[in-house]
């Protein structure tokens, strides 16, 4: 599952050399007083959040806290009922957000390479389209599966194809809606390090929604907890990258966030997957 060390090629394909370029690739996001109502039900009750360009933010919370709704607003699949959502520093930034879903959502009737090409969006007929698809597939370690049908891939491979599809347009903002939730533990760890590497190389802004606090800490610069439609906790994760799993500092942070999450929950409800 882990990508074998053609890593250097892959980084070369994607990396922008300087950190300044990295900051320029990502886009900042500003949310002020963002609300979303479904009839009587107020799911988001005023979210204020500033996300700096090129950062990796994880959003955690219990089921039904509104985190997935927030991600749908961020990725443009849904519109807010009130408040403001702005990308970039105000200039006419043309941000095409990309979203990775919980399920791979590959077209079963298109070969892997054509599924990735879907991610080119309006650039589908660009002269370098095929090349970009090939390098995105190489980036997720699936170059040799280009001509395969999705039906023959494993769950982890499908999600990697979905990642390649999300990355092929070189988005400035990537939204991730629990994309690793359905994978087995080992595949998950492999995917997490792949995500981290791709993010380090490409420098986009990433927002990850997850149930798994451990995953949030493994990946994010900052963990935001949402409770009853509001930001309840905002913790910086200042750990060196690439991150190793199971460091004492990560464990301490995880315990702290978990304590906040669980405090009102009956003890036997398993909300952490």
């Amino acid at each position: 599952m882990t990508v074998k060390p053609a890593d250097r090629d892959f980084d070369a394909l994607f990396a922008d050399p300087s950190t300044r370029a990295r900051a320029a690739r990502g886009v900042s996001i500003r949310l002020s007083g963002l609300t979303r109502r479904f009839g009587e039900l107020e799911v988001l009750r005023g979210i204020d959040l500033d996300i700096a360009a090129g950062r990796f933010v994880a959003i955690v919370g219990r089921s039904g806290c509104g985190k997935s709704t927030l991600l749908r607003l961020l990725s443009g699949l849904d519109r807010p009922s009130g408040g403001e959502l702005a990308f970039g520093a105000g200039e006419d930034d043309d941000v095409v957000p990309r979203l990775m879903f919980q399920e791979p959502r590959l077209l079963p009737w298109a070969r892997v390479v054509d599924n990735v090409a879907v991610g080119l969006g309006r650039d589908r007929d660009a002269p370098d389209g095929r090349l970009r698809v090939a390098s995105a597939l190489a980036a997720v370690g699936l170059a040799e599966k280009a001509e395969a049908w999705p039906a023959v891939l494993s769950g982890g491979q499908k999600q990697r194809v979905a990642l390649a599809r999300a990355l092929v347009s070189r988005p400035r903002f990537l939204a991730l809606d629990e994309p690793l939730g359905a994978l087995d533990a080992l595949t998950r760890i492999g995917m997490q390090s792949l995500l981290e590497r791709v993010w380090l190389a490409q420098g986009f802004t990433a927002v990850l929604v997850t149930h798994d606090v451990g995953e949030a800490i493994a990946l994010a610069d900052r963990v935001v907890m949402i409770e009853e439609g509001r930001v309840a906790l905002d913790v910086a994760v200042d750990l060196p990258r690439p991150r190793r799993r199971g460091s004492a500092e990560a464990a301490r942070l995880e315990a702290e966030i978990l304590r906040h999450l669980v405090h009102e929950e009956p003890p036997d409800v398993g909300w952490v997957i």
């Binding site: 990725s75 699949l77 879903f101 959502r105 879907v118 991610g119 969006g121 599809r165």
Partner: peptide, 14 residues
Amino acid sequence: VDAGLVEMGRSYGM
């Protein structure tokens, strides 16, 4: 037709 695929297509600008 899988509504998830239609949503995916929309979000990818089809």
